[in-house]
Each structure stands twice: as C-alpha cells, then as structure tokens.
Computed example of a mutant assay.
Amino acid sequence: MSIYLKKPVRGLNLLEEGSIEYSISSQRPKDSKSIGILNLMPNKYETEAQFIKLFDSMKQSVYLRFIRILNHEFKNSYRSYLENTYETFENIKKEKLDGIIITGAPLEKIAFEEVNYWSELQDIFDFIEGNVKTSFFICWAAQAALYHYYGIRKYTSDKKISGVYKHYKVEEEKILDNLSFPLNCPHSRYSGISRSDLENNHGVKTLLNSQEVGELLLFHENKFFILGHIEYDREVLKSEYFRDLSRGIDAQTPKNYFPMDNIKEEPIYSWRNEGKVLFSNWIKYYL
C-alpha cells in the first residue's frame, strides 16, 4: 500500500531514488491510517528517513504527520525548516490521529522536570490518553511517558549502553506475532527504568526482556514503550560511536554490532526485518 505525507520532508533526500513510493496529500486519504510522529531526535532528516523506510511496503496505507515541539530552540539549520514543514500539536488536535509515535531524545542525564519542554510534553501525554487509539514511545520518550503515567522513575549511569542485544518474549501479545526470538534490537542510552517502580506498577506488562540490558518492550492499555531503537538504520550506532570519540568520550565499541568487533567492517543489520514486523503488527492490531 501507500505512504502519504502532508508535506515533503528532507529525509526523503536521504533515500535511494525510487526506493520508496509515496504521495503528498494536504488531507488524509480515506484508505489510510493517520500516524503522528513527534520527532525529538537531534538529527531530524535521518529520523524522518528511518520512519519512512519503516512504514514502506506495509499492507495498510499510512498518512504520516511530522510534529514539532514549540517550547524548544532548535539549531538554526532546523528552525525555519520545522516551522514550514512540521505541524504543531495544537494543529494536530483539530484532526483525528489513529496513532502517535514519540521518538527518543539525548536527554537521559537531565531530570524530566528540567527539560525545557516538559510541560508541553505532559500536555501531549494527557491529550493522547483519551484521544488517540494507540501510542508508541521510544527510548527517552518511553522513560518520560512511564514516569508521567505511572510514576516509574529512571536511573542514569556514566556508562552508556550501546550495541545490539538479544531479547526474549516474557508475555504473549499480538504485537509480537510473526517475530523471531531471540529478537535483536539496538540500544543507545545512559539511562534505564527503576525495577522496583515497575514491579509496583499499574498493570504495565513487560513483553520483551534482555538478560544483559533489561526491559525492551512494555505495554499498557494500547500504549507501547520501547527502550531500544528498533527504528535505527544500519549505520546509526556507528555514527554515534565515532561522534562520541570525536568529543573525547571514552566510548566503548557497540556490542554485537561490528563483525568480530572490527570497527572497519560494515555493521551487521540484524534487526531490520523485526522493526518492520513490529510496526506492521502495531498498525494491524491496534490502529
């Protein structure tokens, strides 16, 4: 089926020409599911491209709406682009969304209340609760949503979790249909969630778990929380690793990512199909 976009985004320029079929539509096509993507990642174009590829070739047509935060001063290179291309959440509220995705952000070491758009994000969380069929929160956004909805706190570490880890099924849920286990998924974070808070939660279920890095996918009342980055392209962990080195950070080589841990080799893209299946199931069963 088709991918529809409200406006052409620059992430399209990062895709191989002709590799993705898409259409631009000012209004939601009748045959599509409307999905908002609140893009909090610093590399806006790369994130756009990742999600467009993720939703390519699915059985259900999707209408992707990229959303921006108002109370944040983005880099100059992004400001005018976001204002002209992305929608605000106030505009989105006027039109029905079937589902919403909120991406991660490099804010793990900052208390939620100290994030300059925390109040705005809380308003978005509150609106989602009763007005959107299903939601998918990724990495930092998953930690923020778990904290907002259930009081599940995060912890931070000086050591970064970076690499591709194996995850195993803990409970049955339709979103896991047709996935192979153990499931590989990249992680790139300095934080995690409090186990004690999770054990005293309000019905939040752990669906996927890793012996090495803990919880991956959690679920409660049509809300999904993934602590890894199943949407990442092959090269993202590599780019982050070399970026950290260039900043003088004593970064460890991402685990289970480069063949034989040789950073000169092309990384192993072992999670590509799993990401497509996971989000395809999300659309099929929950939207």
Rank of each mutant, 00 (worst) to 15 (best):
S194R: 08
I249H: 12
L179M: 11
I263W: 14
S196L: 10
G248D: 04
Y257T: 06
G192T: 05
E235W: 03
K160A: 04
N178Y: 15
S239T: 10
R243T: 01
V236A: 07
H229M: 04
R247K: 15
T253Q: 09
V204R: 02
K255Q: 11
E173Y: 06
T253A: 09
N209P: 09
E231V: 14
A145I: 07
E231Y: 02
G192Q: 08
S191R: 00
S162F: 07
H220I: 15
N262D: 13
I175P: 01
E199Q: 10
S239V: 09
P254K: 04
G228L: 11
I226D: 05
N178R: 15
L237R: 02
G203S: 06
S157F: 08
I152S: 02
L237M: 04
H220V: 13
E240V: 01
K264I: 08
S210G: 02
F181D: 11
P182E: 11
L216V: 08
E173N: 15
R189F: 00
T253M: 14
D250V: 10
L179P: 02
Y168K: 15
T206Y: 03
H229N: 10
I152D: 01
Y232F: 15
E171W: 11
D244R: 11
L245Y: 01
Y241V: 08
P267D: 06
C185Y: 03
S162H: 10
K159D: 07
Y168T: 10
R234G: 03
L198N: 09
E212M: 13
S239L: 13
H229W: 06
S239N: 13
N222D: 01
G151E: 09
Y232W: 12
L208I: 10
F181T: 09
N222L: 00
N222G: 00
N200M: 06
R189T: 00
L176R: 05
I161T: 15
L237F: 01
Y147M: 05
V213T: 02
G151Q: 14
L198V: 03
N178W: 09
Y155I: 03
K238Q: 14
P259V: 07
G214L: 03
S180F: 10
L218C: 02
T206N: 11
K154A: 02
K255P: 03
F258E: 04
I175Y: 01
K154G: 03
F258Q: 09
M260P: 12
L216Y: 06
K154W: 03
V170L: 13
G163V: 09
A251H: 10
K166N: 12
N262M: 06
K264G: 12
F225G: 00
G151I: 06
F258N: 04
Y168A: 08
Y232N: 02
Y241E: 12
